[in-house]
Simulated scan of single mutants.
Amino acid sequence: MTWYVLRRLAVSLLVLLGISAVVFLMLHLVSDSPGRVVLGQRASPEAVSDFNRAHGFDRPVVVQYVSYLGQLLQGDLGRSYKLNENVGTLLALNAGRSAMVSLAGLVLALLIAVPLGVLQAVRRNSVVDRVATAASYVLYATPSFLVGLLLIAVFSQTIPIFPAEASQSHSPWVVFTDPRAMALPVITLAVTSVAVFAQYQRSAALDQLGQDYIRVARAKGLPERLILTRHLLRNACLPLVMLVGTLVPTLLAGNLIVESLFNYPGLGLLFLNSLQREDYPVLLAYTLIGGVLTVAGNFIADVVVAAADRRIELST
């Protein structure tokens, strides 16, 4: 198990190195002069030249990249010249709120999708299975912003149960301290994920229902509820763990839409505001975080699945 983890860690570090190179080159590909990007098109050539010289952008690209890597290793993500603020500080102020909303949406999606997928598998081709499958396809094809708008129209305008705007609290625990204001953003995040998770869980459960250990358990006369909870779920949920790991950046993208729609102060709203200001250091840091989360999610999923099923470790 130790060697497996070390191999996966080495691969993850190489991928992260590649991501850092891509993110670094993005600023240089946007314009021939980073100073021009930061200062704007109206800046004089002298001001652009002084800016590039002061921040080391006049040095060779390789030297700049090595310096950039050194900054990343020290936790320095650069500086927002538009807001005159350290990018790491800006992200840290908003990361907790976004993380809690994403986690709440993910947990809600799994609580609905896992039992629904197993139910569909057990009652394959029944009315319940067909209706749930059709609903999943519809939800999967529906953009998250449209889901949010429909929820606002129904539960905020037609039936005024929840507010249309999310809580403006800067506490990362606002999901628990003000659940009514955060209900619609969390549900919006969960809805599209349920569609994917439920169908994935259904396929995995169907595959496990045909295995010999399920037949043996039924032949022994074990109750169906016990077979499903103690035997089926453990193996049927392993593929779902892998899927959740790969969908971590999707949650980050979903936050961008949901936070904008519900005016929730988090990383997604920060990204959109930075996009309007053309604040490239913040945009690139957000992109880097998305890449890191993708690699980290896959690494954690690989380790968890390997720990639960040693056959995966032996086959690699």
Rank of each mutant, 00 (worst) to 15 (best):
M1N: 06
A10I: 07
V15M: 12
G18Q: 05
I19C: 08
V23R: 00
L29W: 13
V30A: 11
P45H: 12
P45A: 15
V48D: 07
D50N: 13
R53Q: 14
A54E: 12
H55P: 03
G56I: 11
G56H: 03
F57K: 03
V61Y: 14
V66R: 07
V66A: 12
Y68Q: 02
L69Q: 07
L72P: 04
Q74R: 11
G75Y: 01
K82M: 06
V87W: 00
V87A: 01
G88C: 07
L90R: 00
N94S: 13
N94P: 01
A95W: 12
R97N: 13
S98D: 12
S98Q: 08
M100G: 00
S102P: 00
A104V: 06
L106D: 04
A109I: 08
I112L: 15
P115K: 09
P115G: 11
L116A: 15
G117C: 08
V122E: 07
N125G: 03
S126D: 02
V127D: 04
V131I: 15
Y137G: 09
V138A: 10
A141C: 01
A141K: 04
T142Q: 01
P143W: 04
P143G: 04
F145W: 15
V147Y: 04
V147F: 01
A153D: 03
F155K: 09
F155G: 08
P163C: 09
A166C: 07
A166F: 07
F176R: 04
M182D: 12
M182I: 14
A183I: 06
L184I: 11
V186E: 08
V186P: 03
I187Y: 01
T188M: 01
T192M: 11
Q199N: 11
Q199P: 02
Y200P: 00
S203Q: 12
S203F: 05
A204I: 07
A205L: 11
A217G: 10
R218K: 10
R225K: 09
R234S: 12
N235I: 13
A236D: 09
A236I: 13
C237W: 14
P239E: 14
G245M: 02
P249K: 08
P249N: 04
T250G: 12
L252Y: 11
Y264C: 00
L267V: 15
G268Q: 05
G268A: 10
D279T: 06
V282A: 03
L288K: 08
I289L: 15
G290E: 08
G291R: 03
N298K: 01
F299Q: 05
I300S: 03
D302A: 03
V305M: 05
A306N: 07
A308R: 11
D309K: 07
R310Y: 12
I312V: 15
S315R: 10
T316L: 13
T316K: 13
